[in-house]
Amino acid sequence: MGFNSIYFYDSLRSGIQYLPNTFQLTFIPIVIALILGTVIAVIRVYRIPFLAPLLVVLITLYQGIPLVVALMIYHLLFIAEFNDFAAALHLDTSMADINLIWIGIFALSLQATCYMEESIKGAFFSVDKGQYEAGYSVGLTKLQTLRRIIIPQVIPVALPMLTNNIVGAIKGSSIVMVIGITEVLAGSVIPSSKTYAFFEGYIAAALIYWIFTILVEKIAARIEKRGDKYRRNLV
């Protein structure tokens, strides 16, 4: 027993091959979460009756469920119900045609939406109320005020939180391994199943994730710096 660098390189190479899957599992949920999260945040900011309290309850409850548990439940439901579901809709697809990665993307999207909504809502509340009033007072409609006045001020506040959410999504994507999706973590140990060098395999996976998250943070820091140029300090 010991550290075998040849096995380590094999695992590293194998893990990197599955990076596209991890990209999919990270960025598709992030984009969905951005859209849904913004819509829900706006609903909550404007306190739309019935819808706003309902969404608050749903999000608070859903945030309590660990990703593994949600993933297991969706996977079970998918296995048990998909064929009936497709038959009911007269679709000509069977379970085998669906890539399991979509269950992972579904679960990760829902989770990311909850976290994203929280950050976007926080960013919305950081904009002063007077900004809305100023918008209305010069004759802008609600939507115009939102688009031209509020959202440009929300973005710089939301960016650092967005980075945190992306890093969280990268890390969360490793959990989909439990339902048999091959991404970086599962990919890194494919060579290990022949050699029993699991330690080297997992170290390789850790290294890939580490570099990936550091890169994301570095890029985000650059973008934030660029955004700061356009922020005037009034005080």
């Binding site: 027993m1 010991g2 550290f3 990268i170 890390k171 850790a206 994730y209 580490w210 998250t213």
Partner: peptide
């Protein structure tokens, strides 16, 4: 940085497979 940049699951597996090797060596 390592603990914040890698998934919890990966850390768990690294410890699970790494500690026995470390202790043995």
């Amino acid at each position: 940085s390592f603990m914040r940049g890698t998934p919890m699951l990966v850390q768990l597996l690294v410890v699970f497979y790494g500690i026995p090797i470390l202790m043995q060596q």
